[in-house]
Write a protein that binds this DNA or RNA. Structure first.
Lengths: 140, 140
DNA sequence: TATAAACCTATAGATTTACTAGGTTTTAAA
DNA sequence: TTTAAAACCTAGTAAATCTATAGGTTTATA
């Protein structure tokens, strides 16, 4: 399951990306427009700033703005920062690898091989989609 | 993240599937062989029996056995029973759909459309793999 | 100088996970 | 007919994680 944090974070990034000008967007504006608790959103935006997706400006008229172009931001990167590993088990994670306690040999593990396939499928989708792609998505 | 429960459940099913004869397999045997806490495993096997994947026989010489052929058991079905929805957000789940509180219109939601793609990719992988496929997987 | 914004730290309730404990019931073999 | 081994059942619990909330401080603008 995707955490609320990740979901809100993606929505916030998409909201900022949809703004034509590059003026800072306030957390309060995003909070209202996207129905997200403002304090919770603030902590998420802060994290996105610290991890290099957003810049910020303090004080009156301040807010958050994108540092890179939306088309340069892959959704894999966003999800990894907000949610953590894309893989469903640590033993198939590229960026957060961890060995399983119970499993003596990954090469013969039935779960391992299945989850590698799932991971690669997800990775393809999330790597193909940039913030630009998802920000302007319309109804099918 | 895949829960331990699901992981253990898949491993147990694969273990049973690898047995050539159809004699019942004891929880204790699986527990030892796969390094899973026996009591925890028992509860998982019970759930798999109740949801129609396994049959059981009580008493001495009893155990669990597959009800269907391994090639007839899709991994989508296994995961849905053990883990729940395959989708990462309830609003794109086919079997466990739920509307999001915050989202006024799914058709314009950036997360929604992205997660539909991820769901479909996962569904393809998990639908293509049967218990037979994963039980006999070898090193790449 | 007042206001509005980001920024920071701590905390807390709810939920989920991953078990454990302690049995009962059923069946096969001795 | 007794004993042992197995599934089956119910309850609880420690730890972690999630989803916030509370209550401020700092910084910049008008």
């Amino acid at each position: 399951m995707l955490s609320k944090k990740t979901k809100y974070g993606i929505k916030a990034l998409a909201y900022i990306a949809r703004k034509k000008d590059r003026k800072p967007v306030q957390a309060s504006e995003i909070s209202e427009s996207e129905n997200i608790s403002q304090k919770f959103l603030e902590s998420i935006l802060l994290e996105l700033r610290k991890s290099g997706f957003l810049g910020s400006k303090k004080g009156k008229g301040g807010g958050y703005y994108l540092i890179k172009e939306p088309e340069e931001i892959k959704m894999t990167a966003v999800i990894r920062v907000l949610e953590g590993p894309i893989a469903m088990v640590p033993c198939v994670s590229l960026n957060y690898y961890e060995k399983c306690d119970d499993c003596p040999d990954e090469r013969t593990c039935s779960v391992h091989k299945l989850m590698i396939q799932v991971r690669d499928a997800s990775l393809n989708v999330l790597g193909d989609n940039t913030l630009k792609d998802i920000a302007f998505m319309q109804s099918s």
